[in-house]
Design a protein around this nucleic acid. Structure first.
Lengths: 145, 145
DNA sequence: TGAATTTATATCGTATACGATACAAATATA
DNA sequence: TATATTTGTATCGTATACGATATAAATTCA
């Protein structure tokens, strides 16, 4: 029955860490006026502008029933525009507005600021990359389910 | 600007994995009639019955504004009971009902079933434990923030 | 001991998540 | 080419999360 102990679950640390990381981001994102999922959408668009709802959803592993209202709020905030694709009228293309693009510079210091805060205590680069590749292995494994 | 690429963020894998793991649990938890956070509450109570709202919240790193409605739903489902502590009338003690206790046995096979599904492809035990302790290090670091 | 402070929980408002379903545009196919 | 199927988004309902705020019980302290 030990396997039902909370501390023996591998699932819980991921659940907890996800929320703790979002909390750590919060003060930085507040300055940008973004929530964490909104920030992720911005990352995707800063990397490549003019993507369909589905393309964004696939990268963030989120369905349209989550993404659509999220994008609508971001449109209201003036960060992005939503317009139908001319080639395929089913698709809705998301583009950055000048205001949305402008935030990129302000955001660029966030990852560093966070790492400095948390991982300050000697986490060596190799170990860090090792962890990341391990996480990606799990993600790919679970995406296929 | 590469540091703003989604794939270079350490935060995203945790966010994604958390949701993917919950998805993987879903079919198993559906049989139990529980959501994932409800399952976590049950884990905490199966390990030790009769805990206050705060005690449960601390273990799951959740505030009462999340836990309270969650527990109320579980009370409606007949899994737990909520009653004021006699020693301290501010505290609300949560206890398992027979129905809640009964589910423990059915749940005991879930962790194994999941690991068999996902980690089937040779993940050795040592590496697994290493990962878990690394995650716990991060959790403790972020909890202190 | 009476008022100020702290503690434990609950309530409210907003923003995700996501299963189920709807619906229009595009594609396949008989 | 008319219909069935697929694809891309959106809508609806329910369940988290969580900041801000409220409130009653307990504790502190002037």
């Amino acid at each position: 029955m030990d396997q039902l102990k909370l501390e023996n679950q591998i699932c819980f640390p991921f659940y907890a860490l996800s929320r703790l990381i979002i909390r750590a981001y919060q003060p930085h994102l507040e300055e940008l006026g973004l929530t964490y999922p909104q920030f992720l959408v911005m990352l995707v668009l800063w990397e490549q502008d003019h993507q369909s709802v589905n393309q964004i959803g696939e990268k963030l592993i989120l369905n349209t029933n989550t993404i659509t209202p999220l994008l609508k709020r971001m449109e209201l905030m003036g960060l992005i525009s939503r317009r139908k694709s001319k080639e395929d009228e089913r698709k809705v293309l998301i583009s950055l507005t000048p205001k949305g693009l402008q935030k990129k510079e302000k955001a660029s210091c966030i990852p560093d600021a966070l790492l400095a805060n948390v991982a300050d205590e000697q986490i060596d680069r190799t170990q860090f990359d090792e962890l990341k590749s391990q996480l990606n292995f799990w993600i790919e494994a679970l995406k296929k389910e």
